[in-house]
Every structure is written in structure tokens, then in C-alpha cells.
């Protein structure tokens, strides 16, 4: 379902070119949960961005359902993402001026879905926030905000979900509850999950664990 071939990323730095990684190969099957584990600055978030088509690599190809998304322009990648790809970010990235319900409705409206309100209400109920629908992000705790973000990620029933350090801004017990929710929904929907984290405990809950270090990717036995 998702594959990367010969993926490389370089930047121009003050002392010459910096190579974040080069020649990465990766294949993720339908319904798999894959963790990308790595230290800060190892390039794991960059890799997630490339796999999600949010950025283009310096070299190599990324295939989503057999389509080379590197060859597409930005708008075609956006169309490919709409309704098929979900995101959960470390800093939640909820729109402050919209209520919890409206934040969840947003991707549905972008995908021109029928009756977005009912679907968004169901999604918020599924993450346990039935009583918080009319709240604005500022009126929610960090854990609640992340649950709204998870609701937003699953509401379009995406086939592929990217999660970037989803517990990074949360305390441990809240983080655990949020991850329980994420994995439960993942299983229920049969979604393919790419989870970027620096937490080995969290990584171990996935089907596969890939470690990124010194510019190369290694697979650990699950």
C-alpha cells in the first residue's frame, strides 16, 4: 500500500551539505501498524512528511497504492490525501476558532462528504467527547485536545493514518489512554498506521518497528 524506494534527503547547511538519510527502502502492507523509532534529529518526522506527501524528497520515489506521489504536483498529492489519509500531530494542530465538533467536521467538508455533522458527532462520541462538542480547543485539556485530533483523523475513515509523536505533549497516563484509543480505532477501522515516536514502549505496540539512525533504516524483530 505504501512503499519508498531509494529515498534520500539532503539540506544545504552552513558547512556544506547535510545528508539526513539516503537510499531508504521501505514497504508497508495494508492494515499494518508500523512504528518509526529514532532519537531527536534523526529525521523520523521528515520521513513521515515524505511518506505522507507533505514534502518531496531530494531523491527516490514514494508509492501510494502504486502511484508515484513524488511525480505528482502538490495539488494532486492533496487530492490523493483528501479523505484517504489522516494525521495526528504532537501539538494537536486544532484550529482555535472552531469548536471540537467543527474541527472534526473540517476534513469531511474538504472531502465534500454528505452530512458531515452527523459523522463528526459519531466520531467525537467514539473518542469519548460526546459532552465536549461545543467546546473550543482552549477550553479542553491536552488529552481532550488530542482525542479531538484523533476523532478528526478517523472521521473520514482513512486507509492510512500518520501519527507524529502523538503523546509528546501529554503526561504518561493521559498518553497511554490516548494511545489505547488510537490503537483501538486503528484495529476497528483496519487502518494502516505509521507512528513516529522516540518511545520504545509505544513502538513495541505496533506490528513492526523500524529504527532510524545515522541516516539508515533498520527493522527490528517485533
Amino acid at each position: 500500500m505504501l512503499a519508498a524506494r531509494g529515498l534520500g534527503m539532503h539540506f544545504a547547511g552552513p558547512e556544506g551539505e547535510i545528508t539526513l538519510f539516503r537510499d531508504l527502502d521501505l514497504t508497508i502492507a495494508d492494515g499494518e501498524a508500523v512504528a518509526v523509532l529514532g532519537a531527536s534529529g534523526s529525521g523520523k518526522s521528515t520521513l513521515l512528511g515524505l511518506l505522507a506527501g507533505l514534502d518531496v524528497p531530494s531523491s527516490g520515489r514514494v508509492y501510494f497504492d502504486g502511484t508515484d506521489i513524488v511525480a505528482l504536483d502538490e495539488d494532486d498529492r492533496a487530492r490523493l490525501r483528501a479523505g484517504r489519509v489522516g494525521f495526528v500531530f504532537q501539538s494537536f494542530h486544532l484550529l482555535p476558532g472552531l469548536t471540537a465538533l467543527e474541527n472534526v467536521m473540517l476534513p469531511l467538508e474538504l472531502a465534500d462528504a454528505e452530512n458531515p455533522r452527523a459523522a463528526a458527532e459519531d466520531a467525537l462520541k467514539a473518542v469519548g467527547l460526546a459532552g465536549r462538542m461545543a467546546h473550543y480547543p482552549a477550553q479542553l485539556s491536552g488529552g481532550e485536545q488530542q482525542r479531538v485530533a484523533i476523532g478528526r483523523a478517523f472521521v473520514t475513515r482513512p486507509r492510512l493514518l500518520f501519527a507524529d509523536e502523538p503523546t509528546g505533549n501529554l503526561d504518561q497516563s493521559t498518553g497511554e489512554r490516548v494511545m489505547d484509543l488510537l490503537f483501538r480505532l486503528n484495529r476497528e477501522h483496519g487502518t494502516t498506521l505509521v507512528l513516529v515516536t522516540h518511545d520504545p514502549e509505544l513502538a513495541r505496540r505496533c506490528d513492526r518497528v523500524l529504527t532510524i539512525a545515522d541516516g539508515s533504516l533498520e527493522e527490528q524483530a517485533a
Binding site: E74, D75, A78, R79, L80, R81, A82, H93, P107, L110
Partner: peptide, 16 residues
């Protein structure tokens, strides 16, 4: 800027 980025990540085209 932030909204634009987020909506594009969620699949909105530039034209939209």
C-alpha cells in the same frame, strides 16, 4: 498560514 498548511495536509488543493 497555519490554517492553510493544515488544510493542505488534510487534502485541500491550493485552488480550493
Amino acid at each position: 498560514r497555519f490554517e492553510t498548511a493544515l488544510m493542505r495536509a488534510l487534502g485541500a488543493t491550493r485552488r480550493r
